[in-house]
Simulated assay, not measured.
Amino acid sequence: MQPKLYIGIMSGTSLDGIDLVLVSFNSPKLSLLCSKLVPFPASLQGELRLLAEPGNNEVERIGPVENQLAECYAIGVQQLLKQANYQPEQISAIGCHGQTIRHRPSQPQPFTVQLGNMHLLAALTGIRVIADFRRKDMAYGGQGAPLVPAFHQAVFAKLGQNRAVVNIGGIANISLLNADGTTTGYDTGPGNCLMDDWVSLHRQLPFDKDGAFSAEGKLLPDLLQHLLEDNYFQQSAPKSTGREYFHLGWLQQRLSGQEAAADVQRTLCRFTATSIAKALQRPNLTEVYICGGGVYHPLLMADLQQLLGPATVQSSSVAGIEPDWVEAIAFAWLAQAFDRQLPGNVPAVTGARKACVLGVEYRP
C-alpha cells in the first residue's frame, strides 16, 4: 500500500515564523520527508503580537491578517513541495493549526480563536485543508488544549516506562506518558514568551540566543516566588493558557522597577523551568523529552535537569524527531487522524466529555 503524504503547518505563540513539514504515513509508522521554516514578514508579525492582546477595532484588523496568513502559509507549502520535489495532487491534505490570538477556555462562554483563511489556503495550494482542531473538543466541555498529547502518545510512549514530553514554545505544555499506557497533560504556563518579550524590550533582540542574556544575570528568589504565586499555577488540571494571559504587562505589574534587566531575565528562565518541573513531579519519571525553541536555551535545559534529576532531560531528537518539527508533525498527524476518523483529543488531558475526531475540512 502506498504511504499517504500530509503537510503539517504550525505557527505558535512564539511568533517566530511558520513551521512546515511533509510527512509520509504508512500506518503505524511516519517519516519526515522535508521541513521548512518560513519567517513572518515583520509587519504581519507585529500585527499578530498586537492582536494577541485586547486592542481597538480588532474585527477590521483580523480580516486582512487572516488573508495574509493564508498567503504566507501557501507560499510555504509551495516552497516545501518544490524543495521535496512533490506536486500538490500527491498530497492527501494539509493539517493547519492557524495562529492563536485568543484562548479563553475558563470563561462562562468558553472560546478560542485561531486565525487563517483556510478556504483561501485550499484555493491557493489546490490541496484539501484540515483545520479548526480545537473547537470540537471545547464543544464537549474540554479546554481545546493542549492538542499534541495524542500525537505524543502515539510516537513517544513506551509501556512500562514513565516518560514526559515537554514542548517549550511561547507557552509550555507537557504530556505525561504513563507506564500503564495512559496519558495526561496540560499547559504549564510561560515557555519562552516572557523571556522573548523581556530581551526584546532591553536588547532589541527577538529571543535570548544561547541564553546569553540570562547567563549575565543572577537569580532573584523573591521575584521567582512572586511569579509562581499567580493563580494559574494553583489551578488543577485540565487547564490551558496563552499570550493573552502571560505577556509583558503581566510581568511588569510584578516588578518593583529596581531590578537589573539581566537579573529579571535569569529569573524568568528559572520561572519557566520551575513551573514545568513542578508539573512533572511524580515518582519513577525516567525520561523527559524537550521540543520547541526552549531546547536551544542551555541555561533553561540545565535548570530543568537540575530540578528534574534523576530523570534524564534531553532533546526529542534522541527519540527520533527533531525538536523544531514536533508540533508541525503533530498537525499532519491530526489531519490523517481526521481522514481515518480517529480521535485526536485525549479527554484526560483536555477535560472533554468524550474522545472526538478533530478538525474541519476545506476543499479547493
Rank of each mutant, 00 (worst) to 15 (best):
G170Q: 10
N178F: 09
A179F: 07
Q143F: 03
N167E: 02
N173H: 03
S214W: 06
T188G: 02
G142T: 07
N162R: 13
A164E: 02
L205A: 13
T188M: 02
I168Y: 08
Q204L: 12
D208K: 01
H202R: 08
C193W: 07
V148D: 01
R163G: 08
L159W: 13
V155Q: 12
F151P: 06
P190H: 01
N178S: 13
A164S: 10
G170I: 12
P221E: 00
T125E: 04
Q153T: 11
G181P: 15
Y140E: 12
A212H: 07
G160T: 04
A139M: 09
A212K: 05
L177T: 03
A154M: 07
A172P: 12
K136W: 07
A139L: 14
T183K: 04
D196W: 14
N173C: 11
L219V: 09
S214N: 13
Q153N: 08
S175N: 09
Q143S: 12
A157F: 11
T184V: 09
G142H: 06
D197Y: 10
Q153L: 13
E216P: 11
M195S: 10
I171L: 12
G185Y: 06
G189Y: 08
S214T: 07
I168Q: 04
D208C: 06
A215F: 01
I174M: 00
D180S: 01
D196K: 14
A212Q: 12
A215N: 08
S200K: 15
P190C: 00
A157M: 14
T184E: 15
P206V: 02
V155Y: 15
V129K: 02
F207I: 07
